[in-house]
Design a protein around this nucleic acid. Structure first.
Length: 251
DNA sequence: ATTTTCAAT
């Protein structure tokens, strides 16, 4: 099954697909949808591309679209977060663009990609630029993002173990993105690349995960199972209780 | 089975 709702990925899947020095012939997308500033996700899961048919992004966009069509009045703001093993191709960028145009609501869209996808392709570059222009927060994953992805989609109790050269590859990827996005400004800040204090490599990542995920732990009153809920139980050492209570709906 | 960019060879 290419798309699975409310399912974590295994540790093996995580390291296989998100390791930025590997290049698997498949794409994995972990996604979540949040309403307003609620802690609990209303929709989450992961998807692989359907070989020969649909890219993972398309499958997930469809799912989110269906949800929004049915629940559009639930909130005034939605937050969509994607962890993608490859950056979206230009077709998927177009689809994301169409998706964002379709809904007259505030959607914060975060995309974190482990590695670039056919970056020499001008169309792909252009597609990413358009997303950026539309306000999509798009970045290459670094240590903190991997940590966050593992925490949210694998197991909040698991410690992330970096592979050799994670940092080097991540910085290289970020430089590629930085270069792409700075080309957009017609200003000639070209010379400041890549060594510049304002260069996002060292600054972007830490904030979100630490402030929103690690700190913001509110007991969920929602029957929806989310990784947050798991963590809460985990931390208080009552993991078995969760498993027991999963079926009873006890929060 | 190999190489390895949402497979193709």
């Amino acid at each position: 099954m290419p798309l699975r709702l409310k399912k974590e990925i295994s540790e093996e899947e995580f390291y296989e697909h998100f390791c930025n020095i590997k290049t698997p012939h498949q794409t994995l997308l972990c996604f979540s949808l949040k309403e307003d500033d609620k802690t609990l996700w209303k929709l989450w899961g992961h998807a692989y591309n359907n070989p020969g048919q649909y890219h993972a992004e398309i499958l997930v966009l469809r799912e989110i679209e269906d949800y929004l069509m049915a629940n559009i009045l639930n909130a005034t703001k939605y937050t969509i977060t994607w962890f993608l093993s490859y950056s979206p191709c230009h077709c998927c960028c177009d689809e994301i663009t169409n998706f964002l145009m379709k809904f007259q609501i505030k959607i914060e869209f975060n995309i974190k990609a482990a590695r670039p996808y056919y970056f020499d392709n001008d169309k792909n570059q252009k597609g990413l630029k358009i997303l950026k222009k539309l306000g999509v927060l798009i970045k290459m994953m670094d240590f903190t993002d991997y940590e966050e992805c593992l925490y949210l989609f694998v197991d909040p109790c698991m410690k992330f173990t970096a592979w050799p050269d994670l940092e080097v590859q991540s910085i290289a990827n970020k430089m590629i993105f930085h270069h792409l996005f700075s080309k957009e400004d017609d200003r000639l800040d070209y010379h400041s690349f890549p060594i510049d204090d304002s260069f996002p490599v060292h600054t972007i990542a830490a904030s979100d995960f630490e402030s929103q995920v690690l700190v913001d732990k509110i007991p969920p009153g929602d029957p929806n199972k989310t990784p947050d809920k798991k963590d809460l139980v985990c931390r208080s050492g009552l993991r078995i209780l969760l498993q027991k209570n999963c079926n009873t709906g006890l929060g």
